[in-house]
């Protein structure tokens, strides 16, 4: 079953220097229970994609076109008040820097407790809050249970501690606890482990994978790190300069990438198990968002670019298991086994 279906999404930002097309016509599906990795360099539009799905784009940004169907509901056409009841309840988000995402003046337990209360019983009267009657021991139990599930030791004591008393890894665990608290159907995770040490990161990835498998939650995991994808994700979507370049099951994408960009990206990762391998450096840098090339977004840096690549951006080509936007795939298909699909 397709839980989230995004079709032809365009998100733009009006700036003094012109319109920035941060997300330029992307389509992606997330099946129920899948973990999808959204990979790209900084500026490729991956965070904007996640924020667009949650309708968290503020002016001067605007979703100019596209359809977002979540669980049968068209998120583009419903009111802000309705989307608010979906956020946190059915779709929740994990941010890169938990230090910034938590309120430093409230205890961790309190912040998680209030998420539960808001979604289950609604807001409380200010008078009740002043009298301290807005705290329920039932919710407290459930929060402690959630903290325990994400592997925070002594959750009873930790409940009453403030964010600064948590280490970075523990705080990210608390953030994950908060995201799964209302048992959402989808989690959008924006580079949650990028700021952490490798030892901490690998533990959190293992824990997260088990947790979402248990609860049957689908995940869109944004990252720039292909090795995180290989640990965690069922499917990968590779983005570059606002477009999807390639997508498919993790194993196929990492073992046999079809798009030159994915290939270059994999080649440029230094690996400790292959010290003799010459590092491949992609020349140049990601195109300026104010001045995107007319042709394929990657043509300027592509080692296999030819004339046609500079004319227009290639359409998505289907291969057996993956899809990639590249003219090279068009050539070896001859139209028989592969069918063109819209962007």
């Amino acid at each position: 079953m397709t839980l989230l279906k995004v079709t032809d999404l365009h998100t733009q930002f009006d700036t003094s220097e012109g319109t920035v097309r941060a997300v330029d016509g992307i389509s992606l599906d997330i099946e129920a229970g899948d973990i999808v990795g959204l990979v790209g360099e900084s500026g490729s539009g991956k965070s904007v994609t996640a924020r667009s799905i949650m309708r968290l784009i503020d002016p001067p940004g605007e979703i100019v076109n596209g359809e977002i169907i979540f669980d049968g509901v068209d998120l583009m056409s419903i009111k802000q008040s309705e989307i608010r009841s979906i956020r946190g309840d059915q779709v929740s988000m994990i941010f890169q820097d938990p230090q910034d995402a938590f309120n430093p003046t409230q205890t961790i337990g309190r912040q998680l407790h209030d998420v539960l209360r808001t979604h289950e019983t609604g807001p409380v009267h200010p008078l009740m809050r002043i009298l301290g009657r807005d705290h329920s021991s039932e919710y407290r139990e459930r929060v402690i249970d959630a903290l325990n599930r994400v592997g925070i030791p002594n959750p009873e004591t930790r409940y009453d501690e403030y964010p600064h008393q948590f280490s970075g890894g523990m705080l990210q665990r608390a953030m994950i606890a908060m995201a799964v608290l209302c048992e959402p159907e989808l989690i959008l995770a924006d580079e949650p482990t990028t700021a952490l040490d490798v030892t901490v990161e690998s533990k959190i990835l293992l824990m997260f994978r088990e947790l979402v498998d248990d609860l049957g939650i689908s995940v869109l995991w944004i990252t720039h790190d292909l090795s995180v994808v290989s640990e965690l994700c069922d499917r990968v979507v590779v983005m570059y300069a606002g477009k999807i370049m390639e997508e498919g099951p993790t194993k196929e994408i990492l073992d046999d990438p079809r798009h030159p960009y994915t290939r270059a990206l994999l080649e440029s990762v230094p690996r400790h198990d292959m010290p003799e391998k010459e590092l491949f450096a992609i020349d140049g840098s990601i195109p300026s968002p104010h001045n995107l090339p007319r042709g394929c977004r990657f043509a300027d840096r592509c080692p296999e670019a030819h004339d046609r690549c500079y004319d227009s951006h290639p359409r998505m080509q289907k291969t057996e298991q993956t899809r990639a936007a590249c003219y090279l795939l068009e050539d070896d298909s001859d139209g028989s086994s592969q069918t063109e699909v819209g962007q």
Binding site: V198, T199, K203, I204, L205, L206, S227, L254, R271, D273
Partner: peptide, 26 residues
């Protein structure tokens, strides 16, 4: 050894060595 074990690589097949991951709190 523990540091090396926790390094992930972009392969379709490899996964982190589960047994050898160390307790995370420094």
């Amino acid at each position: 050894q523990a540091l090396l074990d926790s390094v992930a690589l972009p392969d379709g097949s490899k996964t982190i060595n589960r047994e050898n991951i160390i307790n995370e709190d420094i």
